[in-house]
Simulated assay, not measured.
Amino acid sequence: MDVDGSGAGRMVRAARTINRCVVLGLCLALACAPSVVVGLFVSATPLGLMLYVLGLVAVAPALSAGLYAVRGWRRDPGAGSARLFLRGYRMNVVDVLRWWVPTLVAAAVLAVNVGYAGDHVAGPLLRAAGIAAGVVLALWAGNALVVSSFFSFRTRDVARIAAAEMFLSWRVTLGLACLLLVAAAAVYVAGDGAMLLLAWVFVVLLELVARPLVAHVTARFTPAEPDAG
């Protein structure tokens, strides 16, 4: 069978790609399920929103493992999707949680401030400032996720690089903002189940969007190709 140019070869490659996406989707769904379960039991109140945000602790390690797996496909087309995902999770979970947990705490505080802003005289201004700060925090977290997934830096260096790359790789930041907007809209319209069903799409697109950022960080902060994790 000519897997390089024939119709059968194209079908094999298409089937392989579909299989990878299905396996990635299942892995992400299982890894993110605890956060979705938490979301089912919180109320639509500012306190409930804070608990919902804190319940997202499982999401970033899962997305990091997904990024590792997607990049692994490009480097080793024959590698198994589940194996790459598990390897990425094992390698990156601690590094990701070191910045992700404080980020969630900050996001939870912002969520409460936004939720209770109506109780203050300057409520609209406080709410707008809280939302703006939340957007900046989300964009920074997206960069930090990419950096900690593909590089072995100290947590404080991940934080600094992620902040700097928001401006140095502004096209990536713009692309990330679009992805986050679409993801937030999907969750708002379809509920938390959309996060499980579409997480693999988000990961695949994020890996694609973030390639210039990875290349820039590689050129500036590493002497050679970085070790994942």
Rank of each mutant, 00 (worst) to 15 (best):
D95F: 08
L126F: 10
V172D: 00
V121P: 09
R160L: 07
V172I: 06
Y89T: 00
A82H: 06
F151T: 03
G115D: 09
V112D: 14
N92M: 05
L168I: 14
F85P: 04
W170K: 06
R171L: 10
F167Y: 12
V158Q: 03
L97H: 05
E165F: 03
L174T: 14
P102N: 12
Y116T: 15
L174D: 03
P124Q: 12
R127V: 08
T173M: 09
A164I: 12
S81F: 14
A138F: 03
S169H: 10
V172G: 01
A163W: 09
V96L: 06
W99S: 05
L168P: 00
G134R: 15
D95R: 04
N143H: 15
L168G: 00
G78P: 05
N143D: 05
R83M: 08
A138V: 09
A132T: 14
A82M: 14
I161F: 07
G134W: 14
R83G: 06
V114N: 07
F151M: 01
L145W: 06
V121L: 11
M166R: 06
A164P: 00
L145C: 02
A108Y: 04
A163R: 02
L145Q: 03
G115Q: 05
V136R: 09
G80F: 07
A129I: 01
W99G: 03
W100N: 04
F150D: 11
T155I: 08
A106Y: 01
T103R: 00
F153K: 11
S81D: 06
N92D: 08
G142C: 11
V135I: 15
T155M: 05
R90D: 11
L145Y: 10
L139G: 02
P77A: 10
G123R: 12
G130S: 13
D119H: 13
D157I: 00
P102Q: 13
V136G: 03
